[in-house]
Design a protein around this nucleic acid. Structure first.
Lengths: 242, 242
DNA sequence: CCGGCTACTGTCCGAAAGGACAGGGCGGTG
DNA sequence: CACCGCCCTGTCCTTTCGGACAGTAGCCGG
């Protein structure tokens, strides 16, 4: 156990060393060989797309089966998949099976997980990351998951460094994360604080009608049916903060 | 740089390795020595108390000056302190100074930060954690904060594993977190999803009036002025999840 | 057995939200 | 210049919320 731990620790540290000297494709190749050694046969490294943004634009490295990625983006699974959704709300790595959802409340989530098994993506490990621009996940797929605590932390270390390195190399990030305008976020923050449209109009020195307009726009972009769900979605996606 | 990275990586991995074999006081001691080495002279590791619950019941490890902790709980600073408040709403570690508040809107928050300096708690680093039972933070205090990205990652790794270990050892957690009843949470989740009172009454097979009643109760407990702010606060405090 | 807590239900009414129209101004870019 | 994105404004009307009133029923522990 302690022996295995040393070995994993060593691997992780070698990885951290090497990664600083590699270019993006090199990091990806090394990363792939490391996770293969841990028994993972597919992976993705991508930002969390807010509603209305494309996953492809936020993908730093794609090691998923092509058909699955194609299906995933085409059917907009990123809005339904419980794994990235849970990843957005935690800093700790977790196993896919820990990303709970209610089969009855949320049949769409269950459908995504079921379809994934068709591509041999039965179980996996997900490492969430959080930057100022928003969240990201590294999701690793395997047929049979078993990880002891030390390999988990080693994987986390590897993942964090790989992602950081690729991210800093791929500097000019295209792909807009934030579908909301500054004004829309401003209004949403006040709404989240319990202010009425009229109060917000006084605070921002604009008409009540305009406050409602921004809310309608924000709700449309977030696929929210009313101001409450707009606030909930904006909070969940990290588009606004209390 | 690569050298420093390697050193921090080693520290973190050694910590993870060791922590699995230690009991709670041992983990605390090791954790304390690690953070001292990073220049932090005080810390706390505690759950985020929802309004109306006691901080002391949620504290896993307390390395704050006694007088400060006493003052903090007596004056109920946890409801005012911007650091845990921000920690509740974010998943990424942050420096205390990033936990913004408006000096005019929120003089109480400013007072807490000012009082803290009397106890040599001028600046610090805060690692938020999120569990099913609610949020938690590890808050580390120092006189002069400087952390490079590598030590930040290492600290995060150390913090997460220390907290997890202590938490799992101190299994039977006393201290109620959740001022909300199951029914209130259930209603809040549906409201967050954008459902109207009438729709929720159909879903839960209760009268519309009862739905409103639960919302009023939840809003009262959360000090929310309407359903939107109730949802926002419940989400921010981790009392409900999308 | 009573007090306290939770869950539940009702009516009435003013205030707020939200949907459906229909616009104008301003700055940047192809 | 024409187009686009963002910001801004208006009216009318229906639906929903939220506050105030006043209750019932079941469970649990002192």
């Amino acid at each position: 156990m302690a022996n295995a731990a040393r070995q994993w620790g060593r691997r992780a540290l070698d990885f951290v060393d090497a990664v600083e000297r590699l270019n993006a494709p090199g990091v990806v190749r090394l990363f792939e060989s490391e996770i293969k050694a841990c028994g993972f046969h597919a992976y993705i490294m991508a930002g969390l797309p807010a509603p209305g943004t494309a996953l492809a634009d936020l993908t730093l490295a794609n090691g998923w089966p092509d058909e699955w990625f194609e299906l995933y983006t085409r059917e907009n699974f990123s809005a339904l998949d419980p794994v990235p959704r849970y990843g957005a709300s935690t800093v700790q790595p977790f196993e896919w099976s820990e990303a709970r959802y209610d089969k009855d409340d949320d049949p769409a989530a269950h459908r995504v997980m079921t379809r994934a098994t068709e591509f041999q993506l039965r179980d996996g490990y997900c490492i969430p990351l959080h930057y100022d621009e928003g969240g990201a996940v590294i999701s690793l797929a395997t047929e049979h998951l078993y990880l002891d605590p030390v390999s988990k932390s080693a994987l986390q270390l590897i993942g964090v460094y790989a992602h950081n390195r690729i991210r800093s190399l791929a500097k000019p990030r295209r792909g807009k994360r934030d579908p909301l305008t500054a004004r829309e976020r401003e209004v949403l923050r006040w709404v989240a604080g319990g202010k009425t449209s009229w109060e917000i109009s006084m605070i921002l020195k604009i008409s009540e009608r305009t406050v409602k307009f921004h809310l309608v726009e924000a709700s449309r972009k977030l696929n929210a049916v009313n101001r409450t769900s707009a606030v909930a979605k904006a909070l969940a996606w990290g588009l606004i903060k209390l």
